[in-house]
Simulated scan of single mutants.
Amino acid sequence: MENGHQSSPITIDDAIAMERNLEAILLEFLGKNTPEIKKTVDALTKGIDKILKNQEILQRNIALLNQQKRDDAKVEVPVKKRKPTCDERAGPHRIFECPCLIPGEKFSHAIAADLCINCNNRHNGDCRRKAACTKWEKKHLTIYH
């Protein structure tokens, strides 16, 4: 025993043979599985790229919605007693119900006006009415599609 350690029970030649054997097994494993590993890495890379692109799109949409919210904050919501009119196309509807607007704009106007997107009224807390969307049966009006 040297320095408190036991000497190896195998010879140097055995150790070299074992190392070569291990290398051969590893190369064989990698050789057989390289196409699968490459496919997995490629799929992961594509998935990460897609996530990053979607994240960029979401960040741009959030920035646009925030800008619309700032711009729409100036829009006055008509009092219930007054007949609602639309600035886009003078008519007997509120701005967020205007058929000229795309759904995202309608949604932004309703949010800016602090209205519930399920009933287009103001109230505290969650809307107690059943889901109003006839397309997805979710808690928002179908006009937001």
Rank of each mutant, 00 (worst) to 15 (best):
Q55P: 12
T45Q: 09
K50L: 08
I62L: 12
K69Q: 09
E76S: 12
E36R: 15
V77T: 12
D71F: 05
D71W: 02
L52N: 07
K38P: 11
K80Y: 02
L64W: 06
C100I: 04
L22H: 12
R94V: 00
N66V: 08
T45W: 09
P103E: 07
L65A: 07
K39H: 14
K69W: 01
L27K: 15
Q59K: 14
E23R: 10
T40P: 14
P99Q: 06
E105D: 09
C86Y: 04
P99W: 00
P35C: 01
L22F: 10
C86E: 02
K46L: 06
C98N: 04
G104Y: 03
A43N: 11
A17W: 08
E97H: 11
K53Y: 00
R89V: 07
Q55Y: 05
P92H: 04
I48D: 03
L58Q: 12
K32H: 14
G91M: 08
T45D: 13
E28G: 13
D42P: 05
F29S: 08
Q55D: 06
Q59I: 03
R89K: 14
L65W: 01
I37P: 15
R60K: 14
C100G: 12
A17P: 08
V75E: 07
G91Q: 03
P78S: 01
G31F: 12
R82I: 06
E23F: 12
